[in-house]
Design a protein around this nucleic acid. Structure first.
Lengths: 340, 340
DNA sequence: CTGTTAGCGCATTCAC
DNA sequence: GTGAATGCGCTAACAG
């Protein structure tokens, strides 16, 4: 195994009998070079299998052609679908994608971001950032150093681009839909460690108070909301909670929890939607594969991802911050119905 | 918008009143530094929010601390779970992960890899490589320049590390399990563009010939096997195929297809497992969330990922190539039963 | 223990 | 059009 050292720009210059500057020019095509010498350089490049060293180039241009993406988990297809959108869109502009997983841990989220910064990425997209559990200054300082885009979650920090569905409105819409079918005893199921849940919970609390004049609210926090065990742990918690508060409907912060709720009902012998209605959130592929098919709020993950990528690239190129809010659409399927 | 330039090692040195070398030493902790000056340097680092520039470091160490991962798709949780394993394991060794998605396209697969190479990654992991549809020399040349690990698929190329489940054996095991329950008319469902399917098909053909003395075989290729539409397109194809060949069992190359088969049976009014048994492959979370719960072969994705990461890092550090084959375990659930 | 210095490979002024 | 020279930020000898 001969460890043939890679050719550098100097080798090419020597072989083509020109200066390194000229080689650089033909490689980057940003300055005029006489056709003849250009050919000679190209020949040398080919002969030596020369590949420009990205680190060196990026060191002195002080740019980088990679962008960073931080996800809370890979276990929920939600994130996979968003990443898919980012990847496809970002690739078109010649960027590569550095992926970090925060494992639903605020501290880890900061670590990921620091790692990305030290890798000099040109920008960062954070999916469902956990700003609630990270000291405010962290993101505020970050955004001063590097273009930042949030997908979903809170977005109080100035100068970060944002793309999300209006989750506040979305949850309200879901609630109104349930109320329209006569539901009042609505159990709210959320997880820990994401702004997303908190937004929805606020929406829920307000709705219960304003619309239903109920001060009493039924809220279950099932802990980790995007993990391997989310479906099962939701099911377990609900197998206690359902008999305890006898809801006519259950509203879940994501589809994983929604499926957990479906399973709990099944185990408890409650018919969905006859005895209990269940509504999820996200519209991940899973939601239409279960039985009964889950009614849910569509988040259009791919769009979320590709829009975030566009916003980031805009900022990288010096543009302003922007906020995009996509429509949240109710997908009515089989898990919801009128209260008996 | 003040574009505060990032602090460099020089700034830190100046502030701490030491030389850059000393700063480098405390950052890397590879040489002794007096406690007192170390503290002073650390204070300066904190004050200036100094983050070492990775490009510069990698430029002169001629190493890179990122590794590349190529996946065929993000739509199958299989890949998300493998990536999860890679990411967690790789991070411990200080590497970051550059993710590329080949969209189930051999040409795209090569593009991804070329992009990774020019980014100077220190190694590449390819999940379910499509060597069958890529000219042989491509991977052979690649492996001469860079450490390479395959996850699953064929692995004829020398000097690439490999980790996979024995899919040949696994499919055989599944088939034997079905035969043990009296099944003979077994429909085989595969997809396009992955070595993985071909391995299983060979296993199936051989089994049908050897064990069941059947020359006739029932094979359906549903096309894209890891996409958004895999479940549905499998269902559609099978709604024709099932009445046409009246199988007592259906063996699917992955769980997405397995769920599609379940849905087809449901639509056709065939009871699973009473009328037809269905077995999947992978054991993605989906498989235990559907109704009836899918019997499947466990691929232990997380292990697949973390083992691949270890092998890659071993190779990066100069170690030899290695092959790891994990056990394939049959997970018996509710979708299979004896033939009537 | 600590400072000085020489590159890593490349892009980019500034001359010619 | 082209070449020489400078420096991006950092690590690694080498010398104290």
């Amino acid at each position: 195994m001969e460890e043939k050292k890679n050719a550098t720009i100097v080798d090419v210059a020597k072989m083509a009998e020109v200066s390194v500057a000229t080689v650089s020019r033909v490689v980057n095509g940003n300055y005029p070079v006489k056709l003849e010498t250009k050919e000679r350089v190209k020949a040398a490049i080919a002969a030596l299998h020369y590949v420009p060293n990205v680190q060196a180039r990026e060191l002195n241009t002080r740019r980088s052609s990679t962008i960073g993406v931080v996800v809370p988990s890979l276990y929920n297809m939600f994130f996979a679908e968003v990443i898919d959108g980012i990847e496809e869109s970002v690739r078109k502009d010649g960027f590569s994608l550095l992926l970090n997983c925060a494992k639903n841990d605020p501290r880890q989220e900061m670590n990921c971001i620091n790692a990305l910064v030290s890798r000099n990425v040109s920008g960062i997209i954070v999916i469902s950032p956990n700003t609630a559990n990270i000291r405010e200054s962290f993101y505020e300082e970050l955004v001063r150093r590097i273009p930042l885009v949030f997908i979903n979650g809170y977005h109080r920090i100035t100068n970060v681009s944002y793309v999300g569905n209006d989750e506040k409105m979305g949850s309200r819409q879901a609630l109104e839909y349930l109320m329209g079918m006569g539901h009042q005893r609505i159990l709210f199921v959320r997880g820990a460690n994401s702004d997303s849940y908190t937004i929805k919970e606020e929406s829920y609390r307000q709705f219960m108070k304003d619309k239903l004049q109920l001060d009493e609210s039924f809220i279950i926090n099932i802990g980790e909301g995007n993990g391997v065990d989310t479906v099962d742990s939701t099911m377990e918690k609900l197998m206690e909670a359902i008999p305890a508060c006898e809801p006519t409907a259950i509203m879940c912060c994501n589809d994983l929890m929604g499926v957990g709720a479906l399973n709990a009902c099944k185990r408890l012998g409650r018919k969905v939607p006859d005895d209990i209605s269940v509504i999820g959130y996200d519209n991940i592929s899973l939601s239409r594969l279960v039985e009964p098919k889950l009614t849910t709020m569509d988040q259009n993950m791919f769009q979320l991802g590709s829009n975030a990528a566009s916003l980031l690239i805009e900022k990288i190129k010096g543009g302003q911050s922007k906020r995009i809010t996509l429509d949240n659409v109710l997908i009515t399927r089989e898990s919801t119905g009128p209260v008996k």
